[in-house]
Design a protein around this nucleic acid. Structure first.
Lengths: 115, 115
DNA sequence: TGACCATATAAGTATTTGCTTATATTATGA
DNA sequence: TCATAATATAAGCAAATACTTATATGGTCA
């Protein structure tokens, strides 16, 4: 007797747990709109750099996001190869756009556009 | 300056946090398929009755589910009047059916069908 | 090479979470 | 009315979580 469906409800619960944190949910929404680097997140949230790194690591460990080095920065974005990528997208469609936050950053000249 | 979108991302994060627990996610999926009473959940999960009650209370407190007394039992079901009801439905569509668990209960004669 | 960024990791801590057992509440039915 | 069954609440606890500060790592560039 195997438990395919149990495995998959576990996976979904894991994803929802990751997204069930306001900081991570916002980060994921932002990443769904734009690639983003760690220091931008640090500027966006009133939170220390290690706290941001730890959130990103949790999501990367579960394969939800991927990283790309560009010069001295590490950019994070949604991982389109995640087995539940389309589910993740469905969920974050319900989240209001966070474009405004990025625009604020840009207005402050803090948006990183290295490439 | 107001933060309408912040309020709504909070709400969504709250819902996802509730659903990000395997027990609750399974319960919600079951409730989306059938009304269910507390003692059935107790039989379905290897967990004490208070633990089940506490999960249900959390979800009821957030308006995700509603209760109906029927005789000596309290039945719980999804609350279609929740402002994010359709979002919740979208999410749990991705969860595999838990009908099998209910069928097992029925086979054991433990399914409550009072009315 | 060496100083300086950006990022990651380590270690510690307060809070939250998800259970447990014990007890209260409430409805039913002999 | 009283015993019983179903459910809720209270209190306590171990584990998980989300942060903090301190420190390590690793790339860039003068």
């Amino acid at each position: 007797m195997h438990h395919l469906s149990d495995q998959s409800i576990d996976t979904i619960a894991d994803i929802l747990k990751l997204l069930g944190d306001k900081t991570r949910l916002t980060m994921v929404k932002i990443m769904s709109e734009h690639e983003c680097c760690v220091c931008e997140f640090v500027d966006l949230f009133e939170m220390s750099q290690p706290a941001i790194s730890q959130h990103l690591r949790k999501m990367k460990d579960k394969g939800l996001i991927k990283e790309t080095r560009k010069g001295q920065w590490v950019f994070y974005s949604l991982n389109p190869n995640h087995p539940n990528y389309s589910f993740v997208q469905t969920v974050i469609q319900a989240v209001p756009s966070q474009q405004g936050k990025l625009n604020n950053l840009k207005a402050q000249g803090k948006r990183i556009t290295c490439c």
